[in-house]
Amino acid sequence: MNWHTLLFYLFALMSCGFAIAVVASSNVVRMAFFLIVSLASTAGLFFLAGAHFVGAMQIMIYVGGTLVLLIFGVMLTAHAAFVSMVTKSSDWVLAAVFGGALLGLLALTAFSVEDWRVARGDQAAVTSSEGEFASSIGQALMGMRVDRLSEGNSQLEAGMSGYLLPFEIIAIHLLVVLIGAAYLARTKRRVGSVTEGVQ
């Protein structure tokens, strides 16, 4: 067993285990914590798969940004009564049945293709030279597929123009979402609401 395999199992175990813990826990803050660990371990998996930039991005935005927001939201709304909401046991049974079925299906699919199951032999040669560099990702986002240059011909040129349009769309989308979220979170306070809570 080489260290890649070892680390893969470590991270896979952590991300799956804590994902299950998220489902099993009924305390929102603990759920958020488990989610953090689960997503951070997933970032580890990304690093193992050679996607360094995506891994760092996962930590930075997903774990760092989204979850801080989430915990912030939890704390803002964390009245003791809402921190833990217990699920009915009948819901659990239903969820377990359907979830189990779905998992079985997906697992079967995952191992059904020979090419997917068998790992590439010459891994060591690959990791150090390809796919780890952010510049190719950046250039793809700017509309240039440098990794596809070798296959460049007139038919593929359209495909080589990269992701400039989606990138721009997402940029605008993010801006809109930011403004929208800020607007949505505002409430005009009703007169009298200051005193109504505690007394």
Binding site: I36, H52, G55, A56, M60, V63, G64, F72, M75
Partner: peptide, 22 residues
């Protein structure tokens, strides 16, 4: 040595906040 070192350091350092929040 991480290729996206700057990014990685910043990202992981940002996680410190979780300890404080929790």
């Amino acid at each position: 040595e991480v290729n996206t070192g700057v990014f990685f350091v910043l990202a992981v350092l940002g996680l410190e906040v979780f300890g404080v929040i929790l």
